[in-house]
Design a protein around this nucleic acid. Structure first.
Lengths: 210, 210
DNA sequence: GTCAACATACCAACCAGTTGGTATGTTTTC
DNA sequence: GAAAACATACCAACTGGTTGGTATGTTGAC
């Protein structure tokens, strides 16, 4: 997802540019530290345009989380891990794909909705809810494959829902460690552990070629 | 860690009360959304006292991260999981202990330094560094036990350092999911997966009584 | 008496949001 | 088809309050 430069574009692109600016600035520095003025400068519009499209700064936050869910949903829906027929192969390929897109500057691969949730969960319940919908909505896309593998191997002791959510917890936590260390390697290391866990948990031991 | 009420205390407690206020307010609503005025109200002092003790708001952030590392370090050093002789037992007891303290309001069990890192990593490198020291300093306390288990069982393919860091990634991510869902259960579920991973990875299969 | 800890008054810049417009696009009426 | 009416997108200036911080004064412990 690229940063929109300030174009001499046609009317009507202001809202999209504001959402794009929000995605980048909030991932880099958080929601509260990102002012409406700064968003407008980055988007190349004025405050009047901002408040034409959004009733408040908080409304922009909700729209940004929803836009994130839509854009990432589309990106994941089109990702190559769907090419696998076997549900476990598909799940492991998903984790490989998540690892692969950990690249570039920290704010380019970290998660808008995880970042937003962390600081606004208490004071902005509507933003929190939009973030939850994005995070758990995405986790839900993994549940069918996890459930299929569990059924195939007769696994119990945990649910597909909790394992799907756990994959997102690892990713979110990995992003925090990458930010703390200023090193994407911390994130890829945790994703490697996630893959190792899924293999140990879900793969038939006879299939393992370690 | 309890919130300090506004007492008629002796002089000289202002700094500690500001740090305590920072811990609570930042965990609940983030750093940028927590103003110096709000911190002073919560601590029961004035801006003069604030700026006597801290050169800037950012300095308060660094001090808060360092205070957090010191306080949690002491708490973990005194925790019962150290009672175990066997390194794997001790590690698993550590995870059990982390699960046990996930209780009460969200801001009571979530992590100050993880929350801080997420939003300030880009604009406040000194706060980021203090948070990294806290997170990875704590992870380092687990490395010896992990290394001992790896050596005992001849395990390769990952390092003690990366597995120790991974435990912290899971915890940080678990806290984000708890905030998103407004439900501590999301956090305990991920901690359960962490324990399951450590058992699968590190425990001799013959010892498992599942 | 000295000095650390604290309080008060104040500052310039910034904040989210509002106001009164203009420019452009669309719809309705003739 | 043209023009009026209306809707939408956007602008620049403005508002009251908040912000991080500074300067100066006061208080209490030693």
């Amino acid at each position: 997802m690229e940063n929109a430069s300030t174009p001499t574009s046609t009317r009507g692109a202001g809202r999209d540019r504001l959402l794009s600016a929000a995605r980048d600035l909030v991932r880099r520095q958080g929601f509260a530290a990102t002012s409406v003025d700064q968003l407008c400068r980055e988007a190349g519009v004025t405050k009047g345009a901002f408040f034409h499209h959004f009733a408040s700064k908080a409304d922009l936050g909700v729209a940004a989380a929803e836009d994130w869910a839509q854009a990432t949903g589309a990106m994941f829906a089109a990702a190559p891990y769907h090419d696998h027929d076997d549900p476990l192969d598909r799940l492991l390929a998903y984790v490989d794909f998540r690892r692969q897109i950990i690249a570039g500057e920290i704010e380019e691969f970290t998660c808008l909705v995880g970042t937003l949730t962390q600081e606004v969960y208490h004071q902005h319940p509507r933003i929190r809810a939009a973030c939850a919908a994005s995070i758990f909505g995405h986790a839900a896309t993994l549940e069918a494959d996890i459930a299929a593998v569990m059924a195939r191997r007769g696994l119990t002791g945990f649910s597909a829902t909790s394992l799907a959510a756990h994959t997102q917890a690892v990713l979110q936590g990995a992003f925090i460690l990458a930010k703390a260390a200023d090193d994407p390697g911390l994130a890829t290391d945790s994703v490697d552990h996630l893959k190792r866990y899924l293999v140990l948990l879900l793969q038939d031991p006879e299939r393992r070629t370690a």
